[in-house]
Design a protein around this nucleic acid. Structure first.
Ligand SMILES: NC(=O)c1ccc[n+]([C@@H]2O[C@H](COP(=O)([O-])OP(=O)(O)OC[C@H]3O[C@@H](n4cnc5c(N)ncnc54)[C@H](O)[C@@H]3O)[C@@H](O)[C@H]2O)c1
Ligand SMILES: NC(=O)c1ccc[n+]([C@@H]2O[C@H](COP(=O)([O-])OP(=O)(O)OC[C@H]3O[C@@H](n4cnc5c(N)ncnc54)[C@H](O)[C@@H]3O)[C@@H](O)[C@H]2O)c1
Lengths: 209, 209
DNA sequence: TATTACTTGTGAAATAAGTCACAATGTGAA
DNA sequence: TTCACATTGTGACTTATTTCACAAGTAATA
């Protein structure tokens, strides 16, 4: 869309975090803050914060810092959060259900519009306010509901098949919890959250301390 | 421990992935492979694979490539996987239970030794083979069982308190699922998996495609 | 009003990560 | 055995990210 400047992955991740921190502060009534305060809360440096905020185009004022509400709004615009996006989750297992339950409470710029599974015993019900359908209804529901994002919580062996289905249904970005990299066309973005890998990582880091 | 060379986070993450891929190939009977094949499966470049493998000290042979089993062993040694590590999970909610259920099936170089919660109704039972205790028993159980790793799956408001408790019980590394950075002393490592952030990230990336 | 004391935004430098490209080398074929 | 050649390991280069450091600017104070 509009945003001319390209945001690096690292900066993207941090400004999402900044927005959340700012939201908490705003809820507590804090009107302004300095880069060093945001840095403290985000566990990084003031220079990093200021550099990251450059891409939003928002300018603080010297000596006064940033206005909480304005900065939140500017980050939201930068993140194109104007239009709410809909998510389809595939794989109503333990992890899938935890995610469904969680994102019902939350109300960010996206919502899980529908969930799917290939197991007949897991479909045709409502979990945490989200309807569960059989996988065969995937493409039609995605199109009907205007889904643009996908969450993959199926076993690794089925993850690529599910991703392919998402791509052909027109989904634009996928978050994959299966421990296998997905192959998607270059006009689709796929990210992976690999919990096992994260554990092996901390196991290594504990072992060298 | 022994490992002189410092592994970068990026390389660490990738060699963990390589090991898993190699394990799958070995299970299917593949004896050797080339850097370009591993790159294909890991979704990166052959040069990246070879560069990453340098820190293991393992050398393949030109024209024949890498011997699957040998490379797996060398990565395991690099990752100090000789001694199995024990994990304590705190927060037996939706996500915590999904994780408990999952890591019971798996048998890697670590296992979840005990789970804890502050809610009386969630303790004194066994979930997926893992005993659940009240949080007040945390320190004694951690020491009794020799736990070195912690998983935090409590609400954001309690995450820092739980982390502090883990640190004072002697835990060396923490994996945190709460959407808030943890403050830990420099001899402890804290990593965070932020699912909401990952979703906001793909939402942004979908919006610019 | 002039001055002081901080904070911002950002070029420039430093560091980290990734890619290229090629000499060295072992393999399999003849 | 000899040779052709695909593959490895790595120095050098490129690109990305972070940090430094300081001019410019604003609010508070006197
Ligand atoms: N639960 C965890 O803590 C955890 C940790 C690490 C990785 N993971 C990964 O997350 C994924 C889900 O884990 P889980 O614990 O929820 O597993 P699970 O077995 O509880 O759930 C998997 C679900 O996917 C469904 N499914 C299987 N094949 C399907 C297909 N082709 N189409 C649609 N649905 C299908 C199953 O019916 C089941 O409901 C797995 O890839 C797993 O490796 C989970
Ligand atoms: N479930 C998800 O998909 C999801 C997604 C994003 C983030 N998260 C984060 O993961 C964490 C857990 O999420 P969840 O969905 O499992 O929540 P949940 O409410 O289902 O579970 C939280 C558990 O922690 C326990 N708890 C609360 N305070 C505690 C304390 N001080 N000590 C010990 N136990 C305590 C509660 O009794 C409960 O059992 C939260 O921080 C949440 O923000 C979860």
């Amino acid at each position: 869309m509009g945003n001319a400047r390209k945001i690096s992955m690292k900066t993207l991740e941090r400004i999402v975090l900044y927005k959340r921190i700012l939201g908490d502060l705003a809820a507590k009534g804090q009107k302004t803050l300095y880069s060093h305060q945001l840095a403290e809360l985000a566990h990084n440096s003031p220079a990093q914060v200021r550099r990251d905020l450059m891409i939003t185009g928002y300018s603080g004022t010297p000596r006064r810092g940033y206005t909480t509400e304005d900065l939140i709004k500017k980050i939201s615009v930068t993140l194109n959060e104007t239009a709410e996006q809909k998510i389809a989750l595939v794989g109503i297992g333990n992890l899938g259900r935890a995610i469904l339950a969680y994102f019902n409470y939350q109300q960010p710029s996206f919502s899980i519009a529908a969930a799917f599974d290939s197991d007949e015993t897991r479909v045709d019900r409502v979990i945490a306010g989200c309807r569960c359908y059989h996988l065969r209804e995937f493409e039609s529901k995605v199109k009907e509901l205007g889904v643009t994002l996908g969450i993959v919580t199926v076993p690794a062996s089925s993850a690529q098949t599910v991703a392919d289905m998402m791509v052909s249904a027109g989904i634009k970005a996928i978050l994959n919890f299966a421990p296998v990299p997905l192959k998607v066309p270059s006009n689709v973005f796929a990210d992976r959250i690999d919990i096992t890998m994260a554990l092996e990582k901390i196991a290594y880091l504990a072992s060298i301390k």
